[in-house]
Amino acid sequence: MFRRSYSVSHLPGFGFVAILTFLMLYLPILVLVIFSFNAGVSQSIWEGFSLQWYEAAFRNRQVRDVSIRSLWLAATAAGIATMVATLAALGTTRTGRFPGQTMIYALINQPLMVPEVVTGVALLIFVAAIKVQTGYTGMGYLVAAHTAFCIPFAYLPIRARLETMDINLERAAADLYATPLQAFRYITLPLLVPGILAGFMLGFVISLDTVVITEFVKSAGQDTLPTYMLGQLRRTVTPEMNAIATLFLALSLMIVTAFFLITRKRGA
């Protein structure tokens, strides 16, 4: 007679609830993606496969403009955020406690804690005041706001990477006659690259997703893809929106997957 061994990790019903949760997480997205390929205008009745909504999205000049603006903004903000976060990570890791350390951590993590809507209205007030003073209405405000918001996300993987890096490697380099700059150039930087890449990707995805802050900071004609979508959602939505959302999801998914591959393969 064979009997199943007593599984200590089994808890009745848990597997069922878990599968239900996964379904709940993915079903709405799946429906959204499926109907982006619908031949009809309905979001609930399947009328055959068609790419017409994708064509419509590509032809839509406004969609093209906001997409390009979103990508440009994400690249710029994530780029700057990654640079300054790398410096900050170099300054704050692998050291004992130093005066002001807690304050630096609090400042870096602050965008994670404060609700976006609070940061949003704060920036709205601040930006309005500067606009009155300087008359400048360019993309600078959005770049600054997104950069600040991306910093904690870019900082995390870089710092994690630095913390797992053996400090003896740089000591060994110094011992082998490398100047501090050479040690950074030949040892620290090459080993930090995966962390920096991961930080940039996280920052990029976060900037792409940021809707509330953008909504409050943007001037006229500075819509990004998310604020454009938010505006459109009030109207009757056609599957063109599904197509845009699907493309957007695909982009995020690619970056996140790449991020996981980088951090997993090269991770400690």
């Binding site: 640079m83 410096l87 950069t147 910093i151």
Partner: peptide
Amino acid sequence: LCTPALLVLVLAASGP
């Protein structure tokens, strides 16, 4: 090393 990051954060997140 932290100054550039802190500058951005204070200007565009904490200060406001």
